[in-house]
């Protein structure tokens, strides 16, 4: 949280960064690469949404896959059973997720630290299991397939590259929302809560309604990512949109890139994606579990070298260098 930003880092850097991201799939247009970039962008958007609550307010949630999955299921079910466009369905999914988040938050946000984390884990598991068991609605473990009927109105595109840019738009919009909140009294109040709850209370800062509100916003936004996920794969099943590993990934990307910073989740998502693509390419699936193991090792390594996340640590490093030079 740097109060005074020079216009350069304030706007130019992000614009340049997003321009580079936008150019990536055009420069390397190979289908495998485009797919990897698309997933990285979608992951970045989801992690940005997660970071609003998990990073700024420090309310580490390991249940956000439930909201992501709800976004995927609500829009898909409405599309398949009632012919409602996912462009509308994604908002309905977001509302359902946000409402559920308000309910969950009102119950659990009084819990401290690890108790809150446990409650989100339990919540994620309950929603996941419900999706498996509500066969009539969700198709059970085998999931739901969406027929390939390309049209912008269906949010279905024959050209995969379009999804890449849909995801990038989410990244940019979520980034802008994050920046706006971070610079507002709401953002400051969330950080005050995260840094020192008693000190915040002693200064008259009421955080509970804000924390619940931002949790709901975070749930709603990540739910929209879920809808895009469904339209990209044209397929939804409980494990791939509600699994615990998904929740862990949202958190991990933000943590690796820089928790509670606006760019952290983007940096983290790109890094995590590069690592998993490279792992996949070199280690393949020959020895099962090896990829995950190497992946975990790299994450641990990153956090040992850069405990506040790659972004902030690099920033601090550069700053030290600059003062040393001048």
């Amino acid at each position: 949280m740097k109060p005074v930003r020079s216009p350069l880092t304030g706007l130019l850097l992000p614009v340049a960064g997003f321009a580079v991201l936008a150019a990536l799939p055009l420069i390397f247009s190979d289908a495998f690469f485009v797919a990897a970039v698309t997933l990285a962008f979608l992951g970045a958007a989801a992690s940005l949404a997660w970071n609003l609550s998990g990073g700024y307010a420090g309310q580490l949630s390991l249940g956000h896959a439930a909201f992501y999955g709800l976004g995927a299921y609500v829009s898909t079910i409405l599309f398949l059973k009632a012919g409602i466009s996912p462009l509308i369905g994604m908002w309905l999914g977001a509302i359902v997720s946000a409402a559920l988040a308000v309910f969950l938050g009102a119950i659990t946000m009084r819990l401290k630290g690890s108790f809150f984390v446990m409650s989100t884990l339990a919540f994620g598991a309950v929603v996941h299991i419900s999706a498996i068991n509500l066969r009539d609605l969700t198709g059970g473990p085998s999931g739901l397939a969406i027929p390939l009927r390309p049209s912008p109105e269906n949010l279905i595109f024959a050209k995969k590259l379009i999804y890449t840019y849909v995801a990038l738009v989410l990244v940019i919009v979520f980034y802008a929302i994050t920046r706006m909140i971070a610079a507002s009294k709401i953002g400051y109040a969330l950080v005050a809560f995260r840094e020192n709850h008693d000190a915040a209370r002693a200064l008259g800062i009421r955080t509970l309604p804000l924390r619940i509100g931002v949790f709901a916003l975070s749930a709603g936004l990540i739910s929209i990512c879920g809808t895009v996920h469904a339209q990209y794969y044209l397929y939804v099943d409980p494990d791939s949109v509600m699994g615990l590993n998904l929740s862990l990934n949202f958190a991990l990307m933000a943590i690796v890139g820089g928790l509670g910073t606006a760019y952290g989740p983007i940096v983290g998502a790109l890094l995590v994606s590069v690592v998993s693509v490279v792992m996949q390419a070199y280690l393949g699936d020959q020895i099962s579990g090896l990829t995950q193991l190497a992946y975990a090792a790299i994450v641990i390594l990153v956090l040992l070298v850069a405990p506040t996340g790659l972004g902030p640590s690099a920033h601090a490093f550069l700053k030290r260098r600059m003062t040393w030079l001048s």
Binding site: K185, Y188, A189, V191, N196, A199, A200, A202, L203, I205
Partner: peptide, 27 residues
């Protein structure tokens, strides 16, 4: 607080901003 309770990670200015928010409309 007898045992001071700063927002450690934040700058001195931001620490005081946290208090000033109460009577201010904007950051």
């Amino acid at each position: 607080f007898q045992i001071v309770q700063p927002f450690r990670g934040l700058s001195v200015l931001d620490n005081v901003v946290m208090g000033a928010m109460l009577r201010a409309r904007s950051i």
